[in-house]
Design a protein around this nucleic acid. Structure first.
Length: 560
RNA sequence: GCGCCCGUAGCUCAGUGGAUAGAGUAACGGACUACGAAUCCGGUGGUCGCAGGUUCAAAUCCUGCCGGGCGCGCCA
């Protein structure tokens, strides 16, 4: 594991032992040790690692926190923990000051692990499916999908980094009502393109992209379907358009750095009989009832507010029906955990989906739904309403073209999923070079530049193992080492809390420490021993930045 | 009306039980005859929406209210 994780765990364990020993000795009395934390204090003069143990023991022991802290310190064993000094501070924190030498282990560890630094096995090979984007294949991806794509892909990277076995999956809604409307619109566009004045259906897809789709169709098949059997024409046209749209979606996502392992078709779910099997199982177990000609699932039995229709009065299953079958299938495929990234407009589905899973034996806790709040688009100081029906939206393709993949990904992933984010298009376009991601990338490029410079000057790359790292004594150097030591913990916390934005912040903070250091001190100094130590330091920063950016799906350029 | 999310610096957002609430951005003042100035340094900027409550400790948890977004049985 990593040096910092080892130290934290050991110290935490020693505090547990200290509390236990104090109880044995009759100095503290409590029934059970309450949960407590070891953390890096915000203030530097509060030491390297602090614990709130004395304060959480205040209630069970009915003693003053600072008094408890004194007792705990009597029983604390600091053998082999790097602890140099302890103090009781504030309302009852116990601060540990570590021997500074521990930090000199960090470059050694980073050098030894290389591109694996920050990666761990805490996920213990858990199989996790992350399903995200899953946009309707009836149109192009817009800026709202972009957030889900960035979020889902980064989360998948994070989970992989902590040792989970991750599958990225895209659910294709290629069945049902909206596909019918899609076909209606296509037929109208086809007829229009061939000179027949057929109006577009009122509730169809009005986007201009279908005109192009139909042109592509015509250039391949001409007008031969104009007088063909309506069912055949509809089918051929629909399949053609669906394939084209899916290809476009796949291409755009690839340009965004997102590659799915599985593209799962809803249509196949129907054709394989899984939807009807699922419905039968629900009915057999008494979870369905009939009302007003439709078939309902009693999700209220599982804490939902309302029951939900699974088969419409016209006999066709709803989206919800296939979605249940889909999720049953996910678990049948053996995933231990399933994470869905949904738009916040789907929050109403969470309770009934979990209800359906509870009904069909699966533990609903194994399904996690992350709701990404809406993206509000601004242009010219005004909000731009996105509408697929009218075809007014900014596509992901345009976004990548205008602001770039890296900047766009960073922008979406730097905010917490639950924050409603405002996307100012003018700002994104105009300030292409001022986006925060460039700040991080620049730090990396600068380090590469130092090594280029060193090479030109005939300075050999130092061997970190033989460097005199103790020469790194400046506060800025100590800060950098401490920050780098935190990296594995940050990755684990970001993965476990499913909050990729923590990592985005981390790389920014690391870059800030580096830039500050770079401006204050020179790396390529005359004196060889100091220079080698500093080269070792910046190489350590470089590796950490590179690994962090890789997890974020952002490139680490060697020059900009 | 009910449910979910949000309300923190002028703006965009972190911080979700701990110590003196932080970044970016905007505005202002400084720093390249040394490794890339896409950078750095500096001061400025806060009733953490409001009011109660729980706690040794609340921006954070609970209740109510105010404001905004999203949703609320045969769309997905």
């Amino acid at each position: 594991m990593s040096i910092i994780v080892d130290i934290r765990e050991k110290i935490k364990h020693r505090w547990q032992e200290a509390a236990e020993a104090a109880r044995q000795a009759g100095r503290l009395s409590f029934a059970e040790l309450p949960p407590f934390i070891i953390e890096v204090p915000r203030e530097k003069n509060h030491g390297d690692l602090a614990t709130n143990l004395a304060m959480v023991l205040a209630r069970p022991t009915r003693m003053a926190p600072r008094k408890i802290a004194e007792v705990l310190l009597e029983f604390f064993d600091d053998q082999d923990t790097w602890v140099a000094k302890t103090e009781i501070a504030g309302p009852g924190f116990i601060n540990c000051f570590l021997k500074p030498e521990w930090l000199y282990q960090v470059p050694l560890e980073v050098a030894a692990l290389g591109e694996k630094y920050g990666y761990s096995e805490v996920g213990r090979g858990e199989t996790v499916q992350v399903e995200f984007v899953s946009a309707n294949p009836t149109g192009l991806l817009h800026i709202g999908h972009a957030r889900g794509a960035a979020l889902g892909d980064t989360l998948a990277n994070l989970l992989t980094a902590v040792g989970c076995r991750v599958t990225r999956e895209f659910y294709i809604n290629d069945a049902g009502n909206q596909i019918e409307k899609f076909a209606d619109s296509l037929e109208a566009r086809y007829a229009q393109a061939l000179g027949q004045p057929v109006p577009l259906p009122e509730d169809g897809y009005h986007g201009e992209d279908l005109v192009e789709t139909v042109q592509n169709f015509i250039s391949q098949y001409g007008d031969r379907y104009l007088n063909a059997a309506p069912a055949e024409r509809r089918q051929t046209l629909g399949d053609f358009a669906l394939q084209e749209k899916l290809t476009a979606i796949r291409t755009t996502l690839a340009a965004f750095g997102v590659e799915f392992d599985v593209w799962f078709s809803e249509q196949e779910l129907h054709q394989s009989g899984k939807v009807s099997q699922t419905l039968k199982k629900l009915r057999d177990q008494g979870y369905l009832y009939e009302k007003e000609g439709a078939l309902w699932f009693c999700s209220t039995q599982f804490g939902d507010e309302k029951d939900e229709v699974v088969v419409r009065s016209n006999g066709l299953p709803t989206y919800f029906a296939s979605d249940i079958a889909y999720h049953v299938d996910k678990f049948a495929r053996g995933f231990e955990r399933v994470i869905n990234i949904w738009g916040a407009d789907h929050h109403g589905h969470v309770a009934r989906m979990k209800g359906a899973l509870a009904a069909l034996v699966h533990d609903p806790e194994r399904l996690e739904v992350i709701l990404a709040q809406m993206v509000r688009l601004y242009q010219g100081g005004e909000q731009v309403r996105m509408s697929k029906r009218t075809g007014q939206y900014v596509t992901l393709e345009e976004l990548i073209e205008e602001v770039g993949k890296d900047a766009a990904r960073y922008f979406f992933v730097m905010r917490a999923p639950e924050s409603h984010l405002d996307f100012d298009l003018d700002l994104a376009k105009a300030q292409t070079n001022e986006t925060p991601v460039y700040y991080v990338q620049y730090a990396h490029a600068r380090i590469c530049s130092i090594f280029r410079q060193a090479k030109e000057a005939g300075i050999k790359q130092p061997v970190i193992e033989t460097c005199c790292l103790e020469r790194l004594r400046e506060p800025a150097e100590i800060d950098l080492l401490a920050k780098i030591a935190e990296f594995p913990v940050e990755v684990i916390m970001a993965a476990e809390s499913r909050e990729p934005h923590r990592l985005a912040r981390y790389v920014h903070e690391l870059a800030a420490l580096f830039h500050s250091y770079y401006n204050a001190y020179r790396v390529l100094v005359e004196e060889g021993e100091l220079r080698d130590a500093r080269l070792a330091l910046v190489q350590t920063v470089q590796t950490t930045l590179r690994n962090g950016l890789r997890i974020l799906g952002i490139t680490a350029p060697t020059r900009m």
